[in-house]
Each structure stands twice: as C-alpha cells, then as structure tokens.
Design a protein around this nucleic acid. Sequence first.
DNA 1: GCCAACGTTGGC
DNA 2: GCCAACGTTGGC
Length: 164
Amino acid sequence: MANWLFKSEPNCFSFADLEAEPDRTTGWGGVRNFQARNMLRDAVEVGDRVLFYHSNANPPAIAGIAEVVRAGHADPTAFDSEDDHYDPKSDPEKPTWFQVSIRAVKAIDPPLGLPELRTVSALNGMELLRKGSRLSVQPVSDAEWDAVIALTAKKATTSKPKTR
DNA sequence: GCCAACGTTGGC
DNA sequence: GCCAACGTTGGC
C-alpha cells in the first residue's frame, strides 16, 4: 500500500465537493501531465491513501484524506468534446489519459497550510514543499504521511474548545 | 500581478 | 537530438 498527494484547485473541485459526491466518490479525471499519468496508470492501487491538497487557494493547504477505490482506468473526460479536458487524440481503444477513483475519508478542518507544514522537520524533503513543485500527483512516504497525521492530531488537542 | 520553475512544442 | 520559445502552474 502506498500514499499519495493529489492537488486540486478548490474553486474547481474542493474536498467539500468530493464529500458531496454520491458515495463520496469521484473519478480523478483531467490530469494531463505524463509523469502524473504514469503514476495514475501504473502505481496507484486500491486501498492507497490520499492527501487532498488545495492549490491556488487561500491558504494553500491539505484539506482532507481520501482513499483509492478504483485503480487506473481510461479517463472519460478525454473523450468528451464538451469537457475542458477533451483530447481528440486520445483513442478509447488505446487511451492516452488515465484516472483513478477516490472516496472522501475525512476532512482536515482547519486545513494544514503550507507554512505550518514547513515547521515539521520530518516533512523537509516532501515533494509538495519543494520550490517549484508542480506535479499534481505526488508520492508520499510513510514517514511523511505519519508526520502529517500527527500534525492534525496535535492541532486537535492544541486548539481551544469553543465555549458559549 | 509578478515571477520562478517547470513541461511541451516545433524548427533545425 | 538540441534548444529556444512558449504556455502553465502555483506560491506569494
């Protein structure tokens, strides 16, 4: 089993949007980068864990946890001429683009912003935090995963309970 | 809006 | 196969 980080622009598709999907599940379509495509096609497996990251957001942050419920298969948005990600060169018999399906597991609320993530030494080498990192599907090591989860737990116990 | 860091394209 | 031009991503 492996861990991943998937990026999405929340004004396009947020973690809340994923939670609102039927069965909290969606096909992760529209990825048009070969490196990311290769991982979706060859490496991502059912049961893998996913950090759901909001890019181009304010703040940019890890906003939830998801799990892979279907391994790589043809990305249907490539065949839909109405879709923004339509690719007429992708042949349904031999698809160029792949997606996996993911299901929302749990929101991270409040989300973990980049500055906060940078305070954790265990995340020093994390791909997400590398300058110029643009890959929309990234592998996450077990140590990095654990450090992120530990940060959410720490935050939960540190935050003051709301009183009224 | 700026700009660094990419990935892709296309001429040669 | 090289590489300059261009387009995109994404933090700030």
